[in-house]
Design a protein around this nucleic acid. Structure first.
Lengths: 202, 202
DNA sequence: AGTAAATTTTGACATAAATCAAAATCTACT
DNA sequence: AGTAGATTTTGATTTATGTCAAAATTTACT
């Protein structure tokens, strides 16, 4: 659902990005000094308070974000209700996939749920980097493949789980979810009502 | 779903692959004569009867398939019930994403729902190709990005749709779905019961 | 064409979870 | 610390959809 912007960056295989973006990329490929320098010069490093907005509906999502610290939530409005798409804890990446990749207006909002530190580059910057440093193509491929695999793994059979099982699956995927998002956000992300979620955790 | 196998190859942006694999790749990048020759020499072209199996649970999914003609279904068993993950019509690609990318045993089965023609290469063949012909990395990246965007687009707000709305969304994504899959398959793919689906379409 | 098997529809009933509403907690700011 | 606002819990009721069962229809094979 997942299923989807999945933004469903459910989890990564490698999941260690407490380091800087450069080191993160180097987990996948080796970087030339020149590529490293160019990327470093382009990176936007932002520290944001709780509730600060990274992108809003109707606006094309220009950036691919890496959450270094804190947590980010994607959400949209459906019949006037705020529906959380996914919560991204530290060490994950986030964007409005469709909007970002097709560079068309987004349907969802991206904002921090707690004080956070995110680094990012824009879509055109990445396109430029792919052209200038073709070795980055592999990084780009591996990154999206990981997201794909994670979504695939998380949502298999999801529909037929009870509310309780859905919650347990999430806890397993994001153990600290209750520290970084409130009940209402978690409930809509799971596709259940807040009251049901409250009862489910007894 | 999530989600995720999404195998949710919901649809592609470009969606024209009636042509051969080579032409398909050339929609994304230009291929050197050597790369083209190598790929052609590796491609496995299979014509299969209805219900023939491409991969089974417990076995690592070795191949990335392109459906040239017919339709392919991915499914798994949950509490003893056959749950369709997704149906892939002609001109789409299919694999068990997690299994294929991580090269670990799959949880799901891949089989044709009607007489079909699929072409494929193995995971190690692709890795070899990426190394020998780095220009293919871009193709690999774009391909997965498309899947990602499609999933993102399809599943947004899916949980909160009624059974009827879910069915309408699917019809919109795969107009010929009733020609290539039966009610039971479609219902479990949507996460609703067969009886409800039967009523929904009146 | 005729029969068996598979698929789809229809009916009656059960139930998990949604909704509506209000009370209880928790959080943050003066 | 005390108060207002936000968040979570609890209660009562409704409802969409699931489940079980059987009939009707379609499909496929001899």
């Amino acid at each position: 659902m997942f299923i989807y912007n999945h933004q469903f960056t459910v989890r990564t295989f490698s999941s260690i990005l407490t380091m800087e973006l450069i080191s993160f990329i180097q987990q996948y490929i080796s970087l030339s000094a020149e590529a490293e320098h160019t990327i470093t010069s382009l990176v936007l490093d932002q520290t944001l308070q709780k509730g600060e907005v990274l992108n809003t509906a109707e606006k094309t999502c220009k950036r691919l974000y890496f959450v270094k610290k804190g947590a980010v939530r994607t959400y949209f409005y459906q019949n006037g209700k705020d529906i959380t798409h996914w919560i991204y804890p530290a060490n994950t990446m986030v964007t409005s996939w469709y909007s970002y990749l097709a560079q068309t207006p987004a349907k969802d909002y991206i904002e921090t749920t707690i004080t956070s530190n995110v680094v990012s580059l824009t879509y055109p910057e990445w396109q430029e980097l792919y052209t200038s440093f073709p070795e980055l193509e592999r990084f780009g491929r591996l990154l999206v493949e990981e997201q794909m695999a994670a979504i695939d793994d998380f949502y298999k059979g999801y529909y037929f789980l009870s509310a309780k099982e859905k919650y347990e699956l999430l806890i397993n995927a994001i153990p600290n979810i209750t520290q970084i998002a409130n009940l209402g956000h978690i409930a809509s992300m799971l596709g259940i009502s807040q009251e049901t979620l409250s009862r489910v955790r007894k």
